[in-house]
């Protein structure tokens, strides 16, 4: 129980978003940070929204908390009224030291997990999330890499092999781990195509750059195109100076 990882589950609690089917079971082995948030326009004071909506929001969160606990997760919850949902999510990630954020979409029982591995950076965190969430589940994990022309097979083997070793170190059964490689494709399109055959996707967050600024984070784009739940593993954040 001690090394449960914190996974943030943000829910727009008053806009009809609820905990989709299969998600509580998916997080049975995690420490769920359940964030109910409500985004309000700037004309409205957050306190004003609280006076009117707190009871209803709390009622729903009670319900969701119970669903997660029944499935076996430990739960911590927050309810936030905000003008800026992203700022709130980022703050929760930092305050609760969340390893990953779940984009909650419905799923059946999880049998196949797709783990796109982009590069060596962040592999450790990615492996920890996969091992701790799916380690005790009866699920097959597929490590997936979309290589460009310059990458040799050896490089890829080192990358995916290293990842598989890491998963084994964290206690996963090596026989449940497969690897898959594609070449010369747009990585995002390739991941979206392949993901169709899987129940859920675990992928790393990308460092912000001009491309992510213009097109959005690949993880967010995937979440929009893939119908199942997506774990976005957070990159290591610099210790915030107090």
């Amino acid at each position: 129980m001690t090394d449960r990882l914190s996974i943030l589950v943000p829910i727009r609690v008053l806009e009809g978003e609820s905990v989709p089917e299969g998600v509580p079971e998916l997080l049975a082995h995690a420490h769920v940070v359940l964030l109910g948030y409500h985004v309000i326009p700037e004309q409205t004071a957050p306190g004003q929204a609280r006076m009117q909506f707190e009871d209803r929001a709390t009622e729903r969160l009670d319900e969701y908390e119970e669903m997660f606990e029944d499935a076996g997760a430990t739960v911590e919850r927050r309810l936030v009224f905000t003008h800026n949902g992203q700022k709130t999510i980022d703050r929760m990630i930092a305050e609760h030291n969340c390893m990953a954020v779940l984009v909650p979409n419905a799923t059946g029982p999880v049998e196949d997990v797709l783990v796109p591995v982009r590069g060596a950076i962040g592999v450790d965190r990615l492996a920890r999330v996969v091992a701790s969430v799916f380690g005790d589940m009866d699920a097959d994990v597929t490590l997936y890499h979309v290589a460009d022309e310059d990458t040799t097979d050896d490089d890829i083997q080192t990358l995916l092999g290293g990842m598989a070793d890491r998963l084994a170190e964290f206690g996963m059964d090596p026989s449940t781990i497969e690897t898959r490689i594609d070449r010369d494709q747009n990585p995002l399109d390739a991941i979206v195509d392949v993901a169709d055959a899987f129940d859920t996707v675990v992928m790393g967050e990308t460092d912000p750059s001009l491309a992510t600024f213009v097109f959005g984070m690949p993880a967010d784009q995937l979440a929009n195109r893939f119908l199942g739940p997506v774990f976005v593993v957070q990159r290591e954040r610099a210790e915030e100076d107090e």
Partner: peptide, 25 residues
């Protein structure tokens, strides 16, 4: 009168029961 918050932080106004008002300006 509505209840007063429990604490104010740099990022939020915190009411009891883990209800928070985010600071965004």
């Amino acid at each position: 009168p509505a209840d007063e918050p429990e604490a104010v932080t740099d990022d939020a106004v915190v009411h009891d029961d883990n209800v928070e008002l985010e600071r965004t300006i």
